[in-house]
Design a protein around this nucleic acid. Structure first.
Length: 736
DNA sequence: CAGCCATATCTTTTT
DNA sequence: GATATGGCTG
């Protein structure tokens, strides 16, 4: 008996195919993590040095789990496998070699917030009105370019004729220059600079090619162009690259994920072996059927058919409820009930939704009913104001060139150094070609500033002192020093509000995280700590052994599974998002549908879908129709509180009263899906009284046929399954 | 320069 | 509804 006996034939094939390029098309719940871990174990068993194995996962959590699972399979060596995310891998490489391309190895990492601040500064300097050109839009454009490995120069050339992009061209150029000056990298840069480094330094590239003789990439469908270039460079020498993905679960196009990475894999890597994993081990038949029905509406996909040996299970429950508050109440009641009955424990249940904003109402209800829960995502702990302020101090100590960090804290807490002064220093620094921090130390600069110069001196002295201390002191001691000297917590205490109290608590938590880091790492460094917290994802903190219900977006739920899943807010306009409905571009709606597919396939044995007739969005009441995705689920595998007619037409929606100023955001036309025309057969091949055969329920007699909204509804009395009502187009009844 | 009030914009998803 | 920004005043 070997550890591989539990694998199915296809899985074994994937595990034993160790040499050369391998593409595993793994459907949802088909055991791809099992394949990856067993494959690693197999490699090690066959004499491959764990040191030579690299596995790239989507989150740090997945990386940790993979290491643990490999650890359970092999005797030793699991700890020396390189398992991490793309971003962490790149940071590790860059920390070592980035000086070769003109950065300091102690570079800092900018999050979106920092990026925005920098962009704003640049626009101000370039006299670009951010009213007309939003920072967010610029940022998105720059990110898009970087994901495609387009430099500012290339970008300028490509868009030379486009007047509308003139400003973006100059901001992008200036942005990159400023990042270099600040010795900072953003998330995209981590990838871009690594590829740049590997391309321009053959000896570095070769050392990594030799190191990573066997490479595995999980969630491959969500890689973007730079990420692909990165792994292609690494795999170029030995070509032992194994990627696992599912085009139906590609949900990160908005972040630059390039689906052609999976569709064209074979073109880049000659002699690619392709293995499809189509047996699902996770979900019941009903849930799988629902998922398959939904995803089959997409046109751009590789055809595959997931199947399961599991039981039929329960039908998918659908409830349309009046408002989001009632929805929350329903979900909370259901949870309380199943837990009370002992059917599930809290940690077997998840609530998934499209947007982070939806968590609030659920949370309020859960608190009322005493349901333990944890929200994943939304605002990250490290993005909170007070935490970012303290991090900015640490960043300033670590990398004096980080302008965004210094500007953030120069007047926090208030030191009498206002915007005007900052501007003057900025101008001086620009004119004299020195950094902002150096300008602060420059006497000539202080002469220009006049009055508030006296305020700057103590600040600079303070930072200098901290810098000196950082050479010898622990991070926690420095932090303590910062908090005491700035009076940050004192100030909050004086405020006395609940909000301030919350902030103080957060600071306390931040402090314990520092201590925690110091305890876990023997050679704890400030830069190491900063790096860790900048790459941490909220999902990494999910501890499955704790007994709480998890609330998160579907994006965050990728790769996870739960016994019972609540899919909330299934309304047209919310999910699919109104952003994807308005456009002619069907690829947007198809991405939403894939997202829905991901959501449904998270459920192992119970799935409940809810939608609200009325919902507050941005302070306005919206009246939305049931999500089109719900309508794509065959009626006979659904247990709905809404009739077929109402589901398939707009009848289920409350019309806003005449004196209400709230308007439905969609015109009636939006509900009348075109599928109505396409799907409804002109004529059925059977009629009342005929004997028909159904694929699941067997033989029966047609009792009744009624014209539903978009389809015929057929009532059949089955010999063994009893009387069932179903849609003709889904039922696929055959006349006997 | 800081504090206060009015307003605008936001929400799709994240490493 | 909540938060960030901008303008105004002391």
């Amino acid at each position: 008996m070997s550890i591989y006996d539990t694998l199915n034939e296809k899985q074994k094939e994937a595990v034993f195919h160790t040499e050369g390029p391998l593409l595993i098309l793994a459907g949802a719940g088909s055991g791809k993590t099992r394949v990856l871990t067993h494959r690693i174990a197999y490699l090690i068993e066959n004499g491959i040095n764990p040191w030579n194995i690299m596995a790239i996962t989507f989150t740090n959590k997945a990386a940790g789990e993979m290491r643990e699972r490999v650890n359970n399979l092999v005797e030793f060596g699991a700890e020396s496998i390189w398992v991490s995310t793309f971003h962490s891998s790149c940071v590790r490489i860059l920390r070592r070699y980035i000086d070769k391309i003109g950065f300091d190895n102690n570079f800092t990492i900018y999050d979106t917030d920092d990026q925005k601040k920098l962009i704003k500064d640049i626009c101000k300097r370039l006299n670009i009105d951010t009213k007309y050109l939003k920072e967010k839009a610029v940022l998105a454009e720059i990110s898009k370019a970087k994901n495609e490995m387009i430099t500012p120069e290339d970008y300028a050339l490509e868009n030379a004729g486009d007047f509308g992009k003139k400003n973006i061209i100059s901001v992008y150029k200036e942005y990159q220059e400023q990042m270099r000056k600040n010795n900072a990298l953003d998330f995209d840069d981590l990838l871009v600079k690594t590829v740049e480094l590997l391309r321009s330094n053959p000896e570095v590239l070769e050392s990594y090619q030799e190191r990573f003789k066997y490479i595995m990439v999980d969630e491959y469908q969500d890689t973007n162009t730079v990420q692909f270039l990165f792994i292609r460079l690494l795999a170029d020498k030995y070509k032992n690259i194994c990627v696992v993905g599912d085009d139906d679960q590609s949900i990160y196009k908005f972040r630059g994920a390039n689906i052609s990475n999976i569709l064209d894999f074979e073109k880049y890597f000659e002699n690619t072996k392709i293995i499809k994993l189509e047996q699902n081990y996770r979900s019941t038949k009903m849930i799988l059927d629902a998922a398959n029905a939904i995803i089959s509406n997409n046109t751009a996909r590789k055809e595959k058919s997931l199947w399961t040996e599991k039981d039929e299970g329960y039908r998918v429950i659908f409830r349309q409820i009046d408002s989001e508050y009632d929805e929350a109440e329903y979900v909370a009641d259901e949870i309380s009930q199943v837990v009370r009955k002992g059917i599930y424990s809290y940690n077997q249940i998840a609530c998934l939704y499209r947007t982070n904003a939806q968590s609030r109402v659920l949370e309020e209800r859960f608190i009322r009913e005493g349901i333990p829960y944890k929200v994943i995502g939304g605002q990250n702990f490290y993005q909170r104001k007070e935490i970012k302020d303290l991090i900015a101090y640490l960043k300033t100590v670590e990398n004096g060139r980080d302008e965004v960090a210094i500007k953030r804290i120069i007047n926090v807490p208030k030191r009498g150094i206002g915007d005007a002064t900052v501007d003057k220093i900025d101008t001086f620094a620009q004119a004299n070609g020195i950094s902002f921090y150096d300008a602060l130390k420059n006497e000539n600069a202080m002469a220009v500033i006049g009055r508030s110069a006296s305020k700057i001196k103590p600040f600079v002295d303070f930072i200098q002192r901290l810098k000196a201390e950082s050479e010898v002191m622990k991070i926690s001691d420095i932090m303590e020093h910062i908090i005491n000297e700035t009076g940050y917590v004192e100030e909050l205490k004086a405020e006395g509000t609940d909000e301030a109290k919350g902030r103080i608590e957060n600071i306390g938590e931040f402090f314990s995280k520092i201590v925690d880091y110091e305890e876990k790492n023997e050679n704890a460094t400030l830069s190491g700590f900063l790096e860790e917290i900048s790459l941490i994802a909220d999902i990494d903190n999910l501890e499955t052994e704790n007994d709480y219900v998890v609330l998160m977006t579907i994006h965050s739920a990728k790769g996870l599974e739960f016994n019972k899943v609540f899919l909330c807010g299934m309304e047209d306009g919310l999910f699919p998002s109104y952003m994807s409905i308005g456009t002619d571009d069907t690829s947007e709606i198809e991405e939403e549908r894939r997202l829905c597919y991901v959501a449904v396939t998270r459920a192992m044995d119970s799935l409940t879908i809810t939608s609200a007739r009325r919902r507050m969005v941005r302070g306005q009441t919206q009246y939305n129709a049931v999500s089109r995705f719900v309508k794509e689920i065959p009626r006979f595998i659904m247990d709905a509180n809404v009739s077929a007619e109402k589901l398939s037409s707009s009848e289920g929606i409350i019309k806003p009263s005449a004196n209400s100023n709230a308007k439905p955001i969609f015109k009636a036309k939006a509900f009348e899906t075109r599928q109505y025309e396409v799907k409804k057969q002109d004529k059925l091949e059977y009629t009342v009284g005929d004997t028909v055969k159904h694929i699941k329920f067997g033989v029966g007699q047609v009792m009744d046929i009624t014209e539903g909204g978009r389809d015929y509804e057929v009532t059949v009395d089955f010999v063994s399954a009893g009387t069932k009502k179903m849609f003709a187009s889904f039922a696929k009844l055959k006349k006997m």
